[in-house]
Amino acid sequence: MTLPPPPEWAPHSAVWIGFPSHRDLWVEDLEQAQTEVAAFVRAVHAEGRGEQVILVAADEEAVKAAEVLVGPAARVVRELFGDIWLRDTGAILSGDGVAQDFAFNGWGAKYDLEGDDDIGLRLARREHLQVVRHGWILEGGAIDGDGTGLAVTTEQCLLNQNRNPGLSKAEVEARLAADLGYTRVLWLGDGLVNDHTDGHVDNLARFIGENRLLIPEATDNDPNWRVYQDAALRAQAFGVEVVRFPSPGRVIADEEVIPASYMNFYIGNAAVVVPLYGQANDDAAVAALKELFPDRNIVGQRADHILTGGGSFHCISQQIPRF
């Protein structure tokens, strides 16, 4: 029986982080996104108090830029990938230390980019990890666990016909149990408005303790107020303790609501790094995390340019637990 992945707050030996590498994808945001990722790397490394950072760049030009920006805060490696969202394309380490590598189809055949389908396998082998490959599609940002075998996900993503057409809810649950040791699954409904991942849960709800789930609370004019309300009601009915958390509210770019979320924070050994967007609740989000993680440094960092690519700090990272 596969053991469930350790929770994110358990000790890490290292973390993979993707470094923006392709001008044709990032256009005028490339350098700014690289700078934001480098700041994230330094916060996670925490001058040696945090885990080892393995910063993944896709080509030699990006490797050189990464080395200049992060210095000794990371080990920079070159591996071809389509884009930086290693939470989704990287392998997931189960509780027995095995890299569970799932199929990937560009978030429902939206983005077919060279290297994304096997970057998880290549990175795991580079670290000399045992790898088991699975034929069904599962992105790491679509699930979160508390370490006990309990997972949370959304129906919008895991039951979406653009991922695993024909799989029923019961069949998905059976595969989560067999491949990742998740024996109980809390199903939330939809994810954030305009989220191209089709509702990844790491923008909506995060475990912060055993059977303890963090869910945003809507602010004025928040486009996701129904989503948050439904998620909280489902979690409470399931028997999970719900802790409410500030939301950035309505964030607009190019006259369109974008899926900005404070929930896309990364829990490292020494620091919790939360993305900020210049919103009224930025300070409140940092303050709330300080109460929730008193043993870690809480670092709020702007992630506006990373968000232009569709995600934030949690999306670009995948931890390797310490076994």
Rank of each mutant, 00 (worst) to 15 (best):
D282P: 02
W187F: 00
V172E: 05
A103K: 03
R206W: 00
G82L: 01
S13M: 12
N264R: 13
Y182R: 09
V172H: 01
D117E: 15
N211E: 13
T197S: 01
Q130P: 13
T153R: 08
F40K: 13
W9K: 11
E61K: 09
G181A: 00
Q100M: 08
W16I: 13
F19C: 07
L129K: 05
P11M: 08
A218N: 02
G140C: 12
V53E: 12
L186T: 08
T2D: 12
P248S: 13
S94P: 09
E8T: 02
G239N: 08
E139D: 03
G249F: 05
A65T: 08
F102T: 00
A58M: 12
N203S: 09
R49A: 07
T308H: 03
R175D: 03
E155G: 10
G268Y: 00
R244L: 15
A38D: 11
Q100E: 09
Q236E: 15
G300W: 06
L159I: 03
T153F: 00
A218K: 00
A109T: 15
H128A: 10
T148W: 00
G18A: 03
W225I: 12
A91Y: 01
L123P: 01
I143K: 07
W136T: 10
A271Y: 10
K64R: 15
Q301G: 13
D220C: 06
Q279S: 10
D88S: 14
Q236A: 12
I215M: 05
D230K: 12
L150R: 09
L150D: 09
R250A: 10
E8C: 09
D29G: 14
L69T: 03
A232E: 08
G120E: 05
H134F: 00
V131F: 04
P275L: 03
L121R: 13
E60L: 13
L188R: 02
L138S: 00
N269K: 06
